[in-house]
Amino acid sequence: MNILLVYAHPEPKSLNGSLKNFSVKRLEDAGHVVRVSDLYAMKWKASLDADDSMDRRSDMRFDPALDSKRAFETGRQSEDIALEQDKLRWADAVILQFPLWWFSMPAILKGWVERVYAYGFAYGVGEHSDARWGDRYGEGTMAGKRAMLIVTAGGWESHYSPRGINGPMDDVLFPIQHGILYYPGFDVLPPFVIYRTSRIDEAGFSRIRDALGQRLDDLWNTTPIPFRPQNGGAYDIPQLTLRPEVAPDQVGFAAHTG
């Protein structure tokens, strides 16, 4: 299988750097073809702006969505964006690896998403009507591909437990897993999360490596998170709210899995 690992950490000698190297070797040893987008090493431009369209007139008002759509449709996106889109088309599975900084991904990875997920490529696709509201949330360009997060966090696991001060990790990661991955169609696997990163010794790293290796070995056998597909009957369209009979006692993020 073809696997794209999008990696966002500025220090090659960090825990993240070691885990990235381990993951690549483990996957390649299993016969997979791996490509790595090391965003800091690539000096990836994080900001979505008018320069992302190669022939945009300087006197035109910049519209992030419409400019993205126009550049994608005409093949006039900046080369770095087009290359990353080609990697996504090529990949059977995508792994996003990053440290949890301020309850989200590093800005450079968010910028990768904002620029690479062009209008017409990752969103704005499919029929929009009273029967369907586009190909998204379980459908779309990435349908049939798998995705998984590898996340490191400095806090204790209990801090991210159901009653923990930081909120449940599943809720913290919901905008990424449901919004960034499931939205364009990926089957999203449960995340691999490492806690208390500053306290990991050699024995701890060995245990983490073994557990991660097993998750990578099971990449095509692991059951995805059961997010509800948008056009599968659970939601009223075009309101895009759950039908009254679906999870009637649940609200918030948890209501969208079942």
Rank of each mutant, 00 (worst) to 15 (best):
M1P: 09
I3C: 04
L4Y: 01
L4T: 01
V6S: 00
V6M: 02
A8F: 04
A8S: 10
A8T: 02
P12Y: 04
S14F: 08
S14R: 08
L15C: 14
N16E: 10
G17H: 03
L19S: 00
K20N: 08
F22H: 11
R26M: 06
L27N: 03
E28I: 07
D29Q: 13
H32M: 02
R35S: 06
S37C: 03
S37T: 04
L39T: 03
L39Q: 01
A41H: 04
A41Q: 12
M42A: 11
K43C: 01
W44V: 05
K45M: 01
K45F: 01
D52G: 08
D55W: 02
F62W: 07
F62C: 00
A65H: 03
L66E: 08
D67H: 06
S68P: 02
R70D: 09
A71Y: 03
T74K: 06
T74C: 02
Q77Y: 03
E79Q: 07
D80Q: 04
I81T: 04
I81N: 01
E84I: 03
A91M: 08
D92C: 05
A93H: 10
Q97S: 14
F98E: 09
F98C: 12
P99M: 13
A107P: 10
K110R: 15
K110L: 14
K110G: 09
K110H: 13
G111A: 13
V113A: 08
V113W: 11
V113N: 07
E114I: 08
R115G: 11
V116I: 14
G120D: 06
F121E: 04
H128Y: 15
S129H: 12
D130S: 14
D130A: 15
W133V: 08
G134F: 12
D135S: 12
Y137F: 15
G138M: 12
M142Y: 04
M142N: 04
R146Q: 11
R146S: 10
A147D: 09
L149P: 10
G154A: 11
G155V: 14
G155T: 14
E157Y: 09
S158N: 07
S158Y: 13
S158D: 13
P162W: 09
G164Y: 11
I165D: 05
N166E: 11
N166H: 14
G167N: 07
G167R: 07
P168A: 15
D170Q: 13
D170M: 09
F174W: 15
P175Y: 11
P175A: 11
Q177F: 09
I180G: 02
L181H: 12
P184M: 08
G185K: 04
F186H: 08
D187E: 15
L189V: 04
L189E: 00
P190E: 05
F192Y: 06
V193W: 04
I194H: 01
Y195T: 03
Y195I: 02
E202Y: 00
A203R: 14
G204Q: 12
F205S: 03
I208P: 10
D210T: 15
D210V: 09
A211M: 13
A211V: 07
L212I: 11
Q214F: 07
D218R: 12
L219M: 14
T222R: 01
T223I: 06
T223A: 13
I225F: 05
P226W: 12
F227T: 06
F227R: 05
R228I: 13
G232S: 07
Y235H: 05
D236F: 06
Q239P: 00
R243S: 08
R243E: 09
E245F: 15
A247E: 08
A247V: 05
D249V: 01
D249N: 10
Q250P: 00
A254R: 13
H256F: 15
T257H: 05
